[in-house]
Design a protein around this nucleic acid. Sequence first.
DNA 1: TTAATTGATATCAATATAGTGTCAGTTTAG
DNA 2: CTAAACTGACACTATATTGATATCAATTAA
Lengths: 153, 153
Amino acid sequence: MKVLTKKTDYAIRALLMLGAKRGSYVSARTIAVEQDMPYQFLRGVLQEMIRHDLIVSKEGVQGGFMLEKDPDEIRVKQLIEIFQGTVQVSECMFRKQICANRSRCVLRHEIMRIEQVVNNEFEQVTIGKLLRKLTLADHVMLASGNMEATENK
Amino acid sequence: MKVLTKKTDYAIRALLMLGAKRGSYVSARTIAVEQDMPYQFLRGVLQEMIRHDLIVSKEGVQGGFMLEKDPDEIRVKQLIEIFQGTVQVSECMFRKQICANRSRCVLRHEIMRIEQVVNNEFEQVTIGKLLRKLTLADHVMLASGNMEATENK
DNA sequence: TTAATTGATATCAATATAGTGTCAGTTTAG
DNA sequence: CTAAACTGACACTATATTGATATCAATTAA
Ligand code: FES
Ligand code: FES
């Protein structure tokens, strides 16, 4: 059972990188190379995030993506919803018989309670929190990229 | 995002039915018809549960499946593990760079914490608890099946 | 002008989930 | 003793989801 798919995974990591390099545009190519993600796939993810106003972009040479929204307002829950749809524990168990009485069904109740808990957890985690939790060393890595790519030219 | 797959769903519902009719054998056909599940698919699910010693079976006419284990010891968590594999939020985010230092990675930490919470929730829910939560009306339905199928012959 | 970029889409491949079919062996009612 | 109702054990198909690639037009800075 996998809770986060690649899209969500890549989205979080891309946002962390944009968060670490705030103020400047970072190209999809750069993110893809440094974080080791498939380029075209990542681009799709980034575009989806643009559509949801999480990031902005600039076309052309020196273009790329930039994080504008406050990192503390980007919740992992939202990312999951964007890339994996609303969390639902089960479509609707117990169709035929018990479901005749949806509102009363205690099973559904129990399941929905768990749904609530899970959602709550993911709602707590924001890109901002994750950024702050990164150790200095990690942070530097995220901000500067890998060495080959950064050799002072 | 779907947390419970059909297999888990069917497994829970089948167990509830077996739990409601404890002591007697219930055939896959009966469960399938009364709970509206695909017969062969359900059979696969039942066999899997036998392999994990959750239920026992009897072949031949008047045969079927029976719940032997204490319903309070059958946790939804175990069912999820059987039919969907261990819960893992993400394979392992942040491969290339940060992962050089797995033990230190705070992101992984955060993710694993949530994993813990989710697992905990599903560990709390047992077939026994669900059975007790069923209202009397539901219980009767589960135990007696639908009317057409039960007409005293 | 050209190379580095994003926008927008179309398509494909891989994997996971859901469901069906078949046949051999067991049991019990008649 | 036999037929019908069962499970055991697989092999198979279908559908959906996820992951990834490819193409081409438009934009921009050097
Ligand atoms: S689960 Fe659908 S109503 Fe009980
Ligand atoms: S997530 Fe793999 S180590 Fe940080």
